[in-house]
Design a protein around this nucleic acid. Structure first.
Length: 297
DNA sequence: GGGCCCGCAGGG
DNA sequence: CCCTGCGGGCCC
């Protein structure tokens, strides 16, 4: 289950991983990432197992899993083929929320004194690879707290991390990027209907054929033909959704592209060829007509 | 407190 | 099915 677990408030504590698992907050009993490439990540645990992690409370630099020996040393490179890491990529590409759980073994000042604590929803703002402390390739994910997610409590026996001091012995400039809460983070609504359509088309744009491939995944957008809500009142059904690249999505939404009843794509009055279709993906002619009527000119 | 080893659920 | 993974308890 992606997002909040009903009945589980932010700050809920669990004495053990087994109890957190039974509550559904973080189902795996050992692994730090729960999820798959297809669904995205449900939840992650910060438990001090990866020394390259950084925890600033509302921003977390989370290291993917894999490549370790039993003693917590990186002995080989990490990969995005690893299901947990690929799940975090999907969460980024689809803008999905990820539950964050902090464990007492984390070195962070935000770690709970004992056991595990659910700390709310975060988004995967970015990700990338680098050489880790132990010299092997690691993948890291920047998680940013949702606006509704409160700053976690600081352990009383530890001081919060001080910002780097500006002193005369400091070199000019500042390599440390300013930590500012990004409230322009794009939050893409994801629905079962859109995911179904995107899966049928394997993220290939039904208009231009583009399939955006990035490390760890592919990207497309589910676009409603007839817009939802007033005054258009389009249905949230697969017959009213297209799998599109971002460019064609904008063109469809703003009327640069309309579709004829015979599924010919028309861009600014010029026929461009047939819409790509899939046998399981029946389209609503009513919705196509309604969209065309909206942009009659 | 550290090392060990027995775990199980989730995922391919 | 087999394998892995930011446990956890027990022994020393």
């Amino acid at each position: 289950m992606i997002g909040e677990i009903p009945g589980v408030p932010v700050g809920e504590e669990y004495a053990s991983r087994v109890l957190a698992s039974e509550a559904g907050v973080h189902r795996p009993r050992i692994a730090g990432i729960c999820g798959t490439q297809a669904t995205g990540a449900e939840s992650i645990v910060l438990s001090g197992g990866y020394k390259d992690d950084e925890d600033y409370g509302d921003v977390i630099i989370y290291t993917g899993h894999g490549g370790q020996d039993g003693a917590g040393n990186q002995v080989s490179d990490q990969s995005l083929d690893d299901s947990g890491n690929a799940a975090l990529v999907t969460s980024h590409l689809q803008g999905l929320p990820v539950r964050v759980i902090r464990g007492s073994k984390s070195q962070s000042v935000y770690a709970p004194r004992s056991g595990y604590r659910y700390d709310g929803l975060y988004r995967v703002a970015s990700y990338g690879s680098r050489s880790g402390i132990d010299g092997h390739l690691i993948w890291q994910f920047r998680l940013e707290a949702d606006l509704a997610t409160p700053m976690p409590t600081v352990r009383e026996d530890q001081l919060p991390i001080e910002a780097p001091q500006q002193g005369p012995e400091q070199p000019d400039g500042n390599d440390e990027p300013e930590r500012v809460r990004s409230n322009v983070q794009r939050i893409v609504r994801s629905s079962k209907v859109k995911n179904t359509v995107k899966l049928w088309h394997q993220d290939q744009c039904q208009i231009c054929g583009t399939r955006i491939e990035v490390p760890g995944g592919t990207y497309s957008e589910g676009a409603h033909i007839q817009a939802l809500g007033r005054p258009h009142n389009g249905p949230d059904q697969t017959g009213n959704v297209l799998c599109l690249c971002p460019n064609c999505h904008v063109k469809l939404d703003a009327g640069a592209i309309v579709i004829n009843d015979d599924l010919t794509v028309v861009e600014n009055g010029v026929p461009k060829g047939p819409l790509r279709t899939h046998p399981k993906h029946g389209l609503s002619i009513d919705c196509i007509r309604s969209h065309r009527e909206r942009w009659r000119r």
